[in-house]
Nucleic acid binder design. Structure first.
Lengths: 302, 302
DNA sequence: CGCATTGTCAACTCATAGGAAACAATATAA
DNA sequence: TTATATTGTTTCCTATGAGTTGACAATGCG
């Protein structure tokens, strides 16, 4: 394969009409240009330029090569421009993955705003709780709720996820209100599949950290569905305020043992570590940060 | 400006789907590929490929760049092919310059044969006796009759040009037949403008080289026109056999002092010195050589 | 006839392209 | 699970060759 840089030099010479002029434009010496052309001619096995000290003229081979070289130069400059623009301006396709509950309740509703703010961005949002392969599937950003994000990723903490022990008033009427964490053992504790240690709920209370063994008749891998189950009066669960904030306000759910704080989880926006984060990713994360804030809107008056 | 060779490596990686595979195809080491991509990403300021040891995926910037790179690669390969073909096969435009008399009488008539033998060649023939700038005007070949061709050019000797002292029988009847070169002084000697020393005709005779001072009433810069003048009975001239061969045979002209040989001139095909002579030029010169041969057809029975 | 500028060449220098080897990550096979 | 092979990366090293400088001859201009 040819050394394409020679094509570039050749194109410059042709458009300049002289070696010296081309050399000045490219800020290299005349001899460098001379050697480049000679090398190109040698490697192609064809004379490209007939030259005396004063006059240059293209051979037929030179003429066709000049055309191709100009195209190449063009294409390269264009490529450089579009990549730069893609990098510097928020535009293009943004592939996002978000977990089911949070994605549905808070990411998806926010996208309209985001897209109208950045009209050149398009979004491909995948809602799933399954672990995704950022590299293989080509995601720009994934939004996950977890207490310990993947160490191989850049994880931007968007907001804390506060959780509360909730059930319906009806449930408490029937089964009593637990006064201490230990009382939970007597209750139907609905569990979130992906939470840390199975079978235990951990709290930080007045006495420090405690682990309460719990058991229940239902386990779901989605916070929103879990909330629905609790709303149906099935039992008690540790529910994030981002799903049940309204229900707590409206009284459809009731929180108990509020002085015992479950291990805090966070909403993270994660992306691949790279020195070169495209503008679309930066602006998306900044938008989310602004939208969700340090004290998320669903917690503001909870 | 970018290093276009990095684009090529990038394109190869994309089409291969892996650094290692691309490295093997290009017969360089994996580390070379790795470094090339890193350098490209750095210089563009954008991530192009997301990669783990096992899986590669293009970023958006990478996707657009891949497209452009593929185009560039394509264009380069195409350019290489067409230049090679132009070099190796007799095809394309052949710019030829020929002197008026010889060009008209012998080059132009031969072209039909040549072009039918090489159907992919087209010819741009310029008939002129004016000295031409091979480089500036972009001629591939010039055909000239001279005794000393330009030393800066490659001059292929096609055929000797024999000249004879000619006049019409009528002229000799009226003015007498010169018996010795010195007798020429008494004749109307028509001169060819571009011949060596003005006012003298040089011969190699039995006594060695002699220079005869001559004078006449006409001087023309074209052998054919000069012949026409002689045919009109105006005087004596040194005429090349390639213009008056037929007239000598038919008796319309008569040659005298044949034992005195004028300085021999030659038909040359000249082209610019270069290691890389295109096939079209080579085949043209070979064709002329074959056609005109060492003993030209107009001399064969003269 | 200077004078300036051209393309080329030879000699030299230094950056850097590329290889080798070791490494961590990861997929596949046993 | 463990073992193995392969991936992309990194460090270190070296030879190549790209580019400079400073000549040169050729050439056009005033």
């Amino acid at each position: 394969m040819q050394d394409l840089n020679l094509f570039v030099i050749f194109a410059r010479v042709v458009e300049s009409g002289s070696f010296a002029e081309a050399a000045r434009k490219m800020r290299i010496s005349r001899s460098a240009v001379s050697k480049a052309i000679s090398k190109l001619e040698k490697s192609l096995g064809a004379q490209l330029l007939n030259r005396s000290t004063r006059v240059l003229s293209l051979t037929e081979a030179g003429t066709v090569l000049a055309e191709h070289s100009a195209h190449i130069l063009d294409e390269a400059e264009q490529a450089e421009r579009v990549v730069n623009s893609l990098q510097a301006e928020p535009r293009g396709m943004l592939k996002v993955s978000a977990s089911v509950a949070f994605g549905t309740l808070h990411v998806a509703p926010a996208l309209a705003d985001f897209l109208s703010r950045y009209p050149e961005i398009r979004i491909d949002l995948t809602i799933t709780d399954r672990p995704v392969d950022l590299i293989g599937e080509g995601y720009d950003v994934i939004i996950r709720v977890t207490n310990e994000p993947d160490l191989n990723l850049v994880a931007r903490k968007l907001a804390p996820v506060r959780r509360k022990l909730c059930a319906t008033p009806q449930y408490f009427e029937k089964n009593g209100v637990p006064q201490t964490p230990e009382d939970l053992i007597k209750h139907n504790c609905l569990d979130y599949t992906l939470s840390g240690e199975q079978g235990y709920w951990n709290f930080t209370g007045p006495e420090g950290v405690i682990a309460v063994p719990v058991s229940g008749t239902l386990r779901i891998n989605d916070d929103d569905a879990l909330s629905q189950a609790v709303l149906g009066g099935l039992g008690i669960a540790l529910l994030p305020t981002f799903t049940v904030g309204k229900d707590l306000q409206s009284g459809k759910l009731q929180a108990v043992l509020s002085e015992y704080i479950p291990v805090e989880r966070y909403v993270y926006a994660c992306y691949l570590p790279s020195r070169h984060v495209p503008a679309k990713v930066r602006s998306f994360i900044e938008f989310l940060l602004m939208r969700i804030g340090t004290i998320p809107y669903w917690d503001q008056d909870a």
